[in-house]
Design a protein around this nucleic acid. Structure first.
Lengths: 142, 142
DNA sequence: CAATATCCTAGCAAATTGGTAGGATTTATA
DNA sequence: TATAAATCCTACCAATTTGCTAGGATATTG
């Protein structure tokens, strides 16, 4: 039941971009330095995030990445689903296209996994990047 | 964010044993037939479940497996933790021995994963084998 | 003693994970 | 108009995890 580094690093990267207030693009080099993740790996994470429309990029010198929406309108769930796929502790209760299964009817354990899926989704969807920025400020004024 | 087959098959196997009312040991051969999981693989799952004290075994002819406790006292969480390890969407918020991390203090994303962990645990710990037996009966009287 | 079970050790192919390498392309600025 | 700074793109790959199977040893019943 582990999240892969894609989701973890991806969320850190998105928060890193969100925290920057300058309105100037944030480079992967700077994210890499702050977050301790290689530029090459970050590049891979940016591809789906951009395709999904959560960020936009500026190419060339002084380029980098910017959020496409205000932090209030980007949830952790948006980011995690983009990088890890639909939430699905097991394939037969996937949010998107649940996998067919012979024993589906009368499969009681399926109900368990559906509850797990929903409880995870509830947490991820209730948190926005804005919330995490706030939390960051709180923990830094000490 | 997937559960492995160990947890899935293991829960099915445990429920299968729980549903048997005969007080006689349930063989892996019969579980295998009903659940569509090989005997060899089931054997592997029984080892930790037995070590954890959730089931006991009877060797030899007419042998098999029995629950060590009444279904009311075995939660889904007990089974999943036994087969999959402590609940931990990421290592730094593992229920058991959270992995150290340089950026632990001030790491806001950690709070997210802790919430996810707790919400998963809440679901798994609130469901017992008894609940699932009840659910099975309900879905079969139609 | 034969049949039926669990127990135990090993091994292994396929998939997934977590990256790296190397270059092509775009753009700001000196 | 070069040059440097960036993103973009394709490929590859080693290590780990997953999901098993094989083959036998041991225990128990009838």
């Amino acid at each position: 039941m582990r999240l892969s580094t894609r989701g973890r690093y991806g969320l850190r990267a998105m928060l890193d971009i969100a925290i920057d207030q300058s309105d100037e693009p944030v480079t992967l080099a700077s994210i890499s330095e702050r977050q301790g993740v290689s530029i090459g790996y970050l590049e891979q994470l940016m591809v789906p995030l951009k395709k999904e429309g959560l960020i936009r990029s500026v190419r060339g010198a002084q380029g980098g990445y910017l959020l496409s929406r205000v932090p209030e309108n980007i949830t952790v769930g948006d980011i995690i689903r983009t990088l890890e796929g639909p939430i699905a502790p097991v394939a037969c209760v996937s949010e998107d296209y649940p996998e067919e299964c012979d024993r589906a009817e009368g499969c009681v354990t399926r109900l368990v996994w559906a509850k797990v899926r929903d409880s995870i989704a509830e947490v991820l969807d209730s948190l926005t990047l804005h919330d995490l920025i706030e939390e960051t400020r709180k923990s830094s004024d000490r």
